[in-house]
Design a protein around this nucleic acid. Sequence first.
DNA 1: GTCTATATTCGGATAGAC
DNA 2: GTCTATCCGAATATAGAC
Lengths: 209, 209
Amino acid sequence: MTTTSVQPPTDRRLERREAKLANILAEAWTLARRDGLAAISLRDLADAVGLRQPSLYVYFESKLDLYDAMFADGYRQLLAYINARRYSDDPRRALAKLVADCVQFSSNDVIRHQLLFQRTIPGFEPSAASFDVALDFYAIGRGMAEAAGVRTQAELDIFTALVSGLAHQQIANDPGGRRWVRLADQVVDMFLADLDRRHKTTTSTGGRR
Amino acid sequence: MTTTSVQPPTDRRLERREAKLANILAEAWTLARRDGLAAISLRDLADAVGLRQPSLYVYFESKLDLYDAMFADGYRQLLAYINARRYSDDPRRALAKLVADCVQFSSNDVIRHQLLFQRTIPGFEPSAASFDVALDFYAIGRGMAEAAGVRTQAELDIFTALVSGLAHQQIANDPGGRRWVRLADQVVDMFLADLDRRHKTTTSTGGRR
DNA sequence: GTCTATATTCGGATAGAC
DNA sequence: GTCTATCCGAATATAGAC
């Protein structure tokens, strides 16, 4: 019988582990920004956190599992980014702000955008648990869109296309900048005016849902 | 002096070479669709075209060079796709058709879309020659947008965001389908109506260019 | 939980004969 | 232009001691 008995996992053991995991993830993002998302190597990552490469397998059971953790982490960052802002009581102005924020968020980190919004890593698909984090975000977006007058799925589809289009162009042609971020207001106005026009002509007629 | 003298490269020698190159590219696309763009291996590619792996270096001097050839090839496919269509004399209807075609083109091949429109391969950047092919396409898009009334860079930026947003959502959420393709008309109408409104209120005032 | 040592596979790329 | 043979490096992943 040794003095170091088996500890219950609910302690500052878990806390320690979480902290280390967070550190690994942070370094993984740094490496990804330097070498490209698909070009991360577990050797480099281990070096960056002061471990030997096999020790990483204590925290992730495979490289794809690392991507999965990064995926969830990225969406948590997005949720934190959104939650840190105050949005107007006017649902239309709130929506415009949300769109600008989302585009800005993408512009802030191209690699993160790649992992969250583009399917670029061969073989990677987010786990159900990680995808749930993503769904939390999309629920917020949908809620604010509906508050601003979006009713049908087609209208929501157009809205999501507007947001991802702004983000994509921002990243592809002005990474880190604000060229398309600045257009968010105008685009949302355009979208809402179109909603108005369509809801006016087809009042309670073609309201398929 | 041997009987097989040095031939001038202008013959059906070049023709042969071009045909083989085209075949290699076709198989490369097939492999990319199967394994993912970043996961192509030159060994598999050589197998697919009945060559040994080192022989590929007669046609491409590196793997990135293969991607470069695929990039140019993809944009040539896009140009051919567009040129095979007839567009209305009404520039607004023509523009709506162009957008639908571009979104459909993306939907037809997710991998191709990835290479042409997303920066996903670490270390890959198109050569000047390949980029010129891309520019040919963007010149067409810009021309048709301007014919439909687009005047400023900001307006063009919004337009490109609309197209890439529709394409992105189509690919991400309904690959191979038409869910966002069908929305192209409505989105272009929305965009043009917004142009009208803006040009009406600020007639020849804020026409920065 | 972290280490050393190693398995295993696979990748792109080059040399040089034919 | 195609081949054989090979280099060299890098990758993920596992076994087992401490």
